[in-house]
Nucleic acid binder design. Sequence first.
DNA 1: CCAAAAGTGTTAACTCTACACCCATGA
DNA 2: TCATGGGTGTAGAGTTAACACTTTTGG
Lengths: 229, 229
Amino acid sequence: MDSQNIKVAVDPVVFGYENGSLFILLIKQKYGPMKGKWVLPGGFVKYNEPLSVAVARELKEETNVTVDYLEQLFTFGDDVNRDPRGHIISIAYLGLANPKQLDIQANTDASDVNWFEINKLPQLPFDHNQIIKKGLERLQSKVHYKPIGFDLLGDEFVFSDLENLYRTILQKEIDRRNFRKKILSFGLLEETGELRKTGSGRPGAVYRFNKRKYSQLESSGFHFDIKFA
Amino acid sequence: MDSQNIKVAVDPVVFGYENGSLFILLIKQKYGPMKGKWVLPGGFVKYNEPLSVAVARELKEETNVTVDYLEQLFTFGDDVNRDPRGHIISIAYLGLANPKQLDIQANTDASDVNWFEINKLPQLPFDHNQIIKKGLERLQSKVHYKPIGFDLLGDEFVFSDLENLYRTILQKEIDRRNFRKKILSFGLLEETGELRKTGSGRPGAVYRFNKRKYSQLESSGFHFDIKFA
DNA sequence: CCAAAAGTGTTAACTCTACACCCATGA
DNA sequence: TCATGGGTGTAGAGTTAACACTTTTGG
């Protein structure tokens, strides 16, 4: 109890969405036993440092990224050999970001940073593949009952972006008409009035998610909730 | 990073249900800065000890209790002063038990153990009130989509037990007929054929929850799901 | 005028909600 | 026979699911 010698790390699983694919942010380790390998951009918590501060700091230090959405995911510490350096537990966080709005840069412990498509991930050291799996599961279940999908899109988006985002995350087909009807019924999207050309075909109307309105509604008992046949 | 000196604790929030009330299991501290105060029956994780083993061990050591249901709840580590002894993070667990089937006994660090009714809790030291609040929130949301209520009842129960359990947990009225219809529609309850006298009035039929059947159904895509008007 | 993606409505099936009376038992 | 809690059905409202054609644009 006096000299416990367990170390505490934090590991962010940051998801990004772009062009119909889901990505994870990884860094290449510059030092240590996994030098040269791709890993989650985490690290050790400092003495007297709050956990949420530690994740944000590591993320910023190693990748130059600051994300708007970060929530605690799970604490990994049942496998005491998860890290070869000793008994280290890791508090994993789920982060969401829009890759287009970020300028990733490798720093400190990282010799490289990159986005990896979720179903083309390399074999990662430690239990990092497992941590990512947990993150994906959380994301998949949470998009049903919280409007967190919008954190993966830019501020302005076309309806089909949202549709495809849900298709990609859930890995299943969804009915365009029913989806649109349901989402619009919440009254949380505003048309900007602009149209956006999406390559070919008819341009789509540009929408914004009204976060302020959502907060109000939520605190008066509203629940975002969407199901798929 | 070498001498990080953060300590790691685990704290179980064990709920028990009896006679229409929800209880929490607390111990009275025998040693330390909070000597004589009621706290969650947690403690420090040992070197090379898995987290889930640590919670179960602390719970057993201090209260003589072994619970069937234990899930990781949340890791508290944003307030670095949550414990006056230094920088200590706590991984909280949610436990469910049936008080009638347990023989609580104070041991090791505990000079006393007891069940406290959820809305008559004393002021607890550390952030233990906050941890319990988180546990209750989890319990309240989880009974909607997982059949964990049954872990709070004995193996055999009368329908009104289940009804009252939900009423107590959710702190709202529920419609008896609609509730019964919905629960029975899952086909997960079996009548034992017996009747149980519940004090006065007509005796109720005794049911058992078929855990085996639930596991099967769940793995083939079934979701337990119940809402209340 | 062709290809591509956006935008739109209806119906049937199902689920949810609200609601009140009879039944079995013990005192 | 009374008090107490157990057991039961239905109709209207609301929600979900399934499904295909027209519109706008660029090439």
